[in-house]
Design a protein around this nucleic acid. Sequence first.
DNA 1: AACAAGATCCCACTATATGGGATCGATTGG
DNA 2: CCAATCGATCCCATATAGTGGGATCTTGTT
Lengths: 264, 264
Amino acid sequence: MWDDTPVPSKPSTGETGAAPGSQTLLRGLAILEAVAGGARDLPALSAALGTTRSTTHRLAAALVERRYLTFAPREGYGLGPKLLELGFRAQQAAPVTRVARPHLERLSAECGDTIHLGVLEGDWALYLDKLPGRRRIEISSRVGERQPVWSTGLGKALILDLDETRWRHFYRLGEARGGHSPDLATWLDRMRTYAARGIAYDREENEPEVRCVAGPIRDAGGAIVAAFSVTSTVQYMDEARMEALAGTVRAVAGAISRDLGWAG
Amino acid sequence: MWDDTPVPSKPSTGETGAAPGSQTLLRGLAILEAVAGGARDLPALSAALGTTRSTTHRLAAALVERRYLTFAPREGYGLGPKLLELGFRAQQAAPVTRVARPHLERLSAECGDTIHLGVLEGDWALYLDKLPGRRRIEISSRVGERQPVWSTGLGKALILDLDETRWRHFYRLGEARGGHSPDLATWLDRMRTYAARGIAYDREENEPEVRCVAGPIRDAGGAIVAAFSVTSTVQYMDEARMEALAGTVRAVAGAISRDLGWAG
DNA sequence: AACAAGATCCCACTATATGGGATCGATTGG
DNA sequence: CCAATCGATCCCATATAGTGGGATCTTGTT
């Protein structure tokens, strides 16, 4: 379950990064994403792609025929069952998801907060699963999406075992794309604390009002292969609750890890 | 196992349904499905598509670049995070799934059998969700897949409210594609019983050894919008257990329906 | 070190996708 | 009730975008 993001190395042909030779395929995928983004009818799709009705219609029709999209006369286009199937398979491909699910369900029922499960994919934290939680607040995150490692509790839990050189690397990645809240020294200092306790926090460092507690999941070899986080707004997450959650999170993380063969 | 497109004996009219004009897109989708089917490297993909290395590579590269596939030097291709995201969204698009999940999780924990959630899509039962269960037996079904209505417990639960004319229609669909176990009269008779009790069974009618109990889920208007089934092999499902499960299934079906606004 | 297998790149040819426009069906409103 | 509108679907001449053979590079194997 690894994937490194290739860095565009050809400055000659322009910055687009779009390797030509598959226009039709890319347009088809763009349609999928446009529909996921809420486009319901042909004009909307044409606008999103910048193609004519004809072309858009032909591609959309092919996607419907292959069940990647659904089409209903009065409602327009929707995401199709084939995506359900492929998405489900992609999720099952990572054994972590299947093993962690029941544990996280139980935790979710118990604490009522939003729970995320994720892995390290290249320099990013990739969300594999999400359990919404009972509160009416909506945490804006999506399964399949990438988040910066340095700023999220989940990301920090994923790199708990790495050395300081690598920690700096992740901090620098964040620096490159916009200002940080904490300076390097503070951030490293916190990471050291998190590493020592085997739990990572996020105290509104990234998003105001949003706090979370995250724990690392280890495989049989003891390596961190995934992490999960319990997220809520500050009103449900005072210092006392975070401390209490730390214990729970550590216990659940241990249970999942043991299911993966971890002996620690 | 395969999503087959039936090949007509007479290729005169080109009945394949493949609307030309999107070869590249269709090939790209075929790659996705080949990878889902286990193809790991370029030669395997080329063979599955019947295209040259070049073409296959270009399409696969585009899919990797768009995160629909992953590629790792030693492991080859895999389904990518984008599919996770789209699949998750497709699932959330049906509110039933979200509402039913917690109830089904609880039921799953309680009974340990495989549970399916599905809706009626045209003349088919479409699987929306699947909870594996604790037994080591594997029920071969996939989320996003379609099953015949007439032969599965889930399918029969979906059409419980329809009239006999429509029942006959579904029975005829099955007849067209291979022999039935029960004759029409028997089948209709059973359907009447199921309808009267508000629960559908499948007593190895479809697959030997496989039995299930299925219940209908109703929306605020009382219409059946989905159904779920508890499936197991006959060794875990004697008559007594089926009777016991009927009560549980009816209760859970009612609870989910009430969450959807049903007042019954 | 030479070999083998797979991935990646390149380029001339043509099969393939493109978009303008015509058609058709359903909704809206006058 | 008919006219106008909007969206979906179909058709076809054109050139553009995709194809595949082969060269090249990378990585693991004997």
